[in-house]
Design a protein around this nucleic acid. Structure first.
Length: 383
DNA sequence: GATCCACGGGAATACACGGATG
DNA sequence: CATCCGTGTATTCCCGTGGATC
């Protein structure tokens, strides 16, 4: 979103007396172009890819740190800054084309939550590098590999960042080695939570550790809150959210988002203490990031939406919840049941004991409860 | 005709619990 | 008393098929 757009949005929202002027600024799944309070880490990343500026292929890099510590924020910022730098239609560079000292590099940022197989990773990569449409099916994985081969051969280097490695259901570092091994002029930055010593070899020689936020989180909330709301975020509120979230930027922003929605729903023009209370109460701390949920397939999201809308979470057994949901969708109850179990295994849902009256024998059934904020999910789903 | 993978469904395994067995 | 067994469910695991696309 550019500046004029931001101003226009703010003007119209203000005239309608709305509290939230820019949802993206409050959305924990969206990152700012300029990360707040991470200058030294940004330098470390630039150092890691420094050979690029000498027209060499840099070594691969592993970026790691706890959840909500700003890994995605900093890596997306890096890639988009580099991309802007290289693709900028700067008249000076264009005029001196040929003698340009600008390296011929292409950049791509991939989310392992979406790129869950070799085929999809290749597809996402090509999609990020090329303007042409990339087929979704009907073409072999190796054909996509050949296409990548061509692209890497045509430019000096391709730098790929792959975010969210090693989460339940996503590819890991070892997969990345296997997937990218065929390509010579390709360097990658893997991003994950696991500390290097917890992972098997091989391990990239370059590593950047992103520690959890401490005092910086208040600044982040202030910047993003003030940008997303029609007024400055109160320092006391920012501090309270940061303390509650224990340094996890995702949880803090999620709570702020819900707080703002709560205020707006009440017709309040300011964020009140009670809204912050509601926000923190509505976000399970340590739950799955909302980005994980929003990256699920449409049918999986539909199942979750039905589960929530029909209050089938919690006390209802998986069996009967699946029956109700299946009736509302195109899916059979067997498939819905399997999806619910799979989502529970991936941590998106949490299984819990369900009080069952008549059952005297057999294994106890369980119900499922979202391990993310329902209100945040609902808000982001009908955007 | 080839490709990928979401779906559907069924086999295998885990768990709960009462009763039999050593 | 501890362990095993049988029965009934719940849960996990696995794989063939078909739709959509190239």
């Amino acid at each position: 979103m550019d500046l004029t757009e931001r101003i226009e949005r703010r003007r119209t929202r203000r005239s309608k007396n709305e509290l939230v002027v820019d949802r993206d600024s409050l959305n924990p799944g969206v990152h700012l172009p300029e990360p707040v309070g991470r200058e030294t880490l940004f330098e470390a990343l630039l150092n890691a890819i420094d050979p690029l500026f000498d027209r060499a292929v840099p070594p691969n890099t592993y970026v790691w740190g706890p959840r909500g510590s700003g890994k995605s924020a900093i890596v997306t910022a890096l890639i988009s800054a580099l991309d802007a730098e290289v693709t900028a239609s700067d008249p000076f560079y264009t005029a001196t084309r040929g003698g340009s000292d600008r390296p011929d590099v292409q950049f791509a940022y991939l989310d392992a939550r979406r790129a869950t197989s070799r085929f999809r990773l290749y597809r996402e990569l090509l999609d990020g590098l090329l303007v042409e449409a990339i087929p979704e099916r009907g073409v072999s994985t190796s054909a996509l590999g050949d296409r990548i081969e061509e692209v890497t051969a045509a430019s000096e280097t391709v730098l790929v960042a792959v975010d969210h490695l090693g989460e339940r259901g996503t590819v890991d570092l070892a997969d990345l080695y296997a997937f990218f091994e065929p390509f010579d002029d390709l360097a990658w930055i893997g991003v994950g939570r696991d500390p290097p010593e917890a992972l098997s070899l091989p391990m990239p020689e370059q590593r950047v550790h992103v520690p959890g936020y401490t005092y910086e989180l208040v600044d982040i909330l202030t910047v993003r809150g003030s940008r997303g709301l029609s007024q400055t975020l109160d320092h006391v509120h920012a501090q309270r959210l940061a303390d509650w979230a224990d340094g996890d930027a995702h949880d803090a922003l999620a709570a702020l988002f819900v707080a703002a929605m709560n205020a707006e729903a009440d017709g309040a023009t300011r964020l009140r203490d009670e809204d912050v209370e509601v926000g923190t109460a509505a976000v399970p701390s340590g739950g799955v990031p909302i980005g994980t949920v929003m990256a699920l397939s449409e049918n999986e999201q539909r199942v979750l939406a039905q589960l929530i809308d029909r209050s089938l979470d919690g006390e209802t057994s998986i069996e009967s919840a699946a029956e109700v949901i299946a009736a509302q969708t195109e899916l059979t109850d067997g498939t819905v049941k399997r999806l619910l179990y799979e989502l529970a295994q991936r941590g998106v849902l949490e299984r819990q004991e369900v009080a069952v009256g008549t059952q005297a024998t057999g294994r106890q059934p369980s119900g499922v409860e979202p391990n993310f904020s329902k209100r945040l999910f609902a808000a982001l789903r009908n955007e």
